[in-house]
């Protein structure tokens, strides 16, 4: 875990605060989220207080502070999906899983991320679950998917 962060920070020798966002992005790509430990290390590297890093990271939707769930939902909130009812979809998903956007359920089964556009406007409203795309999703489709995921036996 921490070796990821160390390896990334090693690429940023002598870096200043303007490198913060690229570092955050790389760390999240490597670890799936920004852990407290990672933020502390980044702060030490760039000489920035953790409150400031947390402030920057929470400004953007892309950063998360909990590991992704086994089923990571990305809900598109781009214009086309919005018109096709992605707002309702997100609400439904959030309510059915008990997970707020950006968070992960306690059992680690679900996590939700909101993205601006997945480039699949013709298939709106679109979501992806752990990098697998689902076109023209309806609330009842969500229900169905959740039932399947919940009944799925413990794999690997």
């Amino acid at each position: 875990m921490t070796t990821n962060v160390d390896a990334i920070l090693a690429q940023y020798d002598g870096a200043q605060r303007d490198s913060l966002i690229p570092i955050l992005q790389q760390v999240q790509a490597a670890e799936g989220y920004l852990s407290q430990d990672a933020i502390v290390r980044i702060g030490e590297k760039l000489n920035l207080p953790t409150s400031k890093i947390y402030g920057v990271a929470t400004f953007y939707n892309q950063f998360r502070f909990q590991p992704q769930g086994k089923n990571h939902f990305m809900v598109c909130r781009g214009t086309a999906c919005h018109v096709k009812g992605s707002g309702k979809l997100l609400e439904k998903l959030s309510q059915a899983t008990g997970v707020e956007p950006g968070k992960t359920s306690r059992d680690g089964l679900f996590s939700i991320e909101v993205v601006a556009c997945m480039g699949a406007c013709a298939l709106a409203p679109a979501i992806s679950i752990s990098d697998h795309f689902y076109p023209k999703v309806t609330p009842s489709k969500i229900d169905q998917l959740l039932v399947e995921m919940r009944s799925e036996p413990e794999k690997n």
Binding site: Q36, P49, T50, S51, K52, Y54, G55, T58, F59
Partner: peptide
């Protein structure tokens, strides 16, 4: 931050959800 160099608090989140808060 500027007077005490403690930086316990900063702006967190964005838009209508913005607030003054601590790290995490």
């Amino acid at each position: 931050e500027e007077i005490q160099t403690v930086s316990a608090i900063d702006f967190i989140r964005r838009g209508s959800k913005a607030a003054v808060g601590t790290a995490f």
